[in-house]
Design a protein around this nucleic acid. Structure first.
Lengths: 321, 321
DNA sequence: TTGAAAGCGCTACCAA
DNA sequence: TTGGTAGCGCTTTCAA
């Protein structure tokens, strides 16, 4: 590269980085740029960050469960906002890595920040990341982790909103769908617990309803529905709500007359069902906000870890409840 | 690190990489490992691959449209399969980068392989990647790109299956929904074209129906439905099909009596609609197969680019058509 | 069995 | 205005 332009490697570096401390003559500049184009020269990120001692990489482990449109949109916002701040977002596809082992794998890339969705990162993992140079470690999950900043996604409120609403509708025997898909326990458990809290100190009861995401499973549940004597159900999310509501209707169970149904996520499909699905609207943090948090912490890593409650939940009352 | 264990950096490297060419005494080995644990030492991936001249990173640009469960599952399979082969999968969140500029950004990371979903990569981009050391460049998209291996996802077949089916059902005036969400044109156009091919040389007609993914848009379309005099519609995918079918039913249009509706993707929700939604089942390549292709090409990059047709499409006839 | 040293590509400092 | 050069962390070859 330097050879072709007939200049030194340093000069090449100056030109391509528009180094302002050094002035390069126009002809030289042009020669370098032409050579770069001709050779298809692309700088070597690893060498650059090795030399610099840091990178602008923000690393996120890729979730290994299918993600809904809510999370997808959040991720896009985040990527966009971080790009604006000159960070590079990278989703690390580490399947089968757990705990500290995963943290070590991430640390090998020496990201300047690590955003960890879901649980699974412990204090030791945070420590590993920080020692390896990560200036910001932010968790997005149910509980905070020692040493890391946290965006608390507390799903209790989701169940709680649903529970409060159902009680207000005069319902007293509330079923709660527990999806059987592995990986969803971390959301399902607190949502259930939220419903429990809502009915605490009332005469209402809560019944757990394990359910696989399959027609047959829903049909079996619906077949024994009347024996359960429930007058309401919080179906975990809109998709499970659709599955169950269909099975109930096929079984002749009146929705909402006999049984009220409430979903969560406020997806489009809920509005398309008949009766229209009542649901819990979930407000994720804006990608913009998270990007700003990351940037702030990267610039000043000294601060005490911030903890933000960022999951909003409010009932959207439609026709199914 | 080396200092703490009281050995040279070379010895550290030997121990941590289990270098078989060199035998290290047990005591030394132990000392090194203890020091590593105590310091929380994590090797520096950039330095390693700089020295080695290559990495095991497989880079995929992250799609910036919400992806459905089909793609999510494919991605998980792929990541799993590549992990087994000792590659690291990384999704690069490059928003706003286009064409060769994007290719250059990817090339900076010096991945050993690049998998590019969707269109948007040109022959020049492939060239850039290869010159920067990528041993495999594989596109997953509608058409092959000079110099790259291709997994051809030809969506013509999707539309074609739907068209053939609708004709066989005796339908003659076929509407085709064109989703208005930007980013979907690359799927929508060939699906439409596939329907066109199916009706070619028949007396049937094809009508394009632009539709935003909103209730009001669907309602407006449904309101003028009878004036369109269509007896069938291919709704792009199951979600648009659900949207439109609901609007048609609200308008009193009989499905399938007056108008047959066919979706695509064979999602669960189609089975939960009434009438049950006819759909085009789409078969993506297995992550396993793609991983093997990548590995094969990485090991022997000399071969002539392979082109595989990998998108299967077959109609699933239910009640809506 | 272990250590010394070169060199991967890059940038920042200093000298010319 | 430009070039020489050190050194980021690592692996590998050669020497001890």
């Amino acid at each position: 590269m330097a050879r072709l332009a007939g200049v030194s490697r340093a000069t090449v570096s100056y030109v391509l980085n528009n180094t302002s401390a050094v002035r390069i003559s126009e002809p030289t500049r042009r020669r370098v740029q032409e050579a770069a184009k001709e050779l298809g020269y692309v700088p070597h990120a690893a060498a650059r960050s090795l030399r610099a001692g840091h990178s602008r990489m923000v690393l996120m482990p890729a979730p290994n469960v299918p993600v809904g449109p809510l999370y997808s949109q959040f991720l896009n916002e985040l990527q966009w906002a971080l790009s604006r701040l000159d960070y590079t977002v990278v989703q690390y596809g580490g399947v089968g890595l757990h705990g500290d082992e995963a943290a070590r794998a991430w640390a090998e890339l020496r990201p300047v920040a690590v955003l960890v969705p879901g649980g699974g990162l412990g204090p030791e993992g945070v420590h590993i990341l920080k020692r390896s140079g990560a200036r910001a470690v932010v968790t997005l999950g149910p509980e905070r982790v020692e040493g890391a900043h946290a965006l608390l996604l507390d799903h209790h409120g989701v169940g709680h909103s649903a529970g409060v609403h159902l009680l207000a509708q005069g319902r007293r025997r509330v079923g709660v769908v527990i999806p059987q898909k592995p990986g969803l326990e971390f959301f399902a458990a607190p949502r259930l617990e939220g419903v429990r809290r809502a009915v605490e100190d009332t005469d209402a009861t809560v019944t757990e309803l394990p359910l696989a995401y399959e027609e047959e499973a829903a049909a079996r549940l619906a077949a024994r529905w009347r024996s359960l004597a429930l007058d309401a159900v919080f179906a975990y999310n809109d998709e499970y709500a659709m599955l169950l509501m269909r099975a109930l209707q096929d079984e002749g169970v009146g929705v909402p007359e006999e049984t009220a149904v409430v979903g969560a996520d406020d997806l489009m499909l809920g509005r398309l069902l008949r009766p229209r699905l009542s649901t819990v609207h979930i407000e994720l943090p804006s990608g913009q906000d998270l990007a700003e948090l990351v940037d702030r912490v990267v610039r000043d890593p000294g601060g005490v870890p911030e903890v933000h409650e960022v999951l909003g939940a409010r009932i959207v009352h439609r026709e199914s409840s």
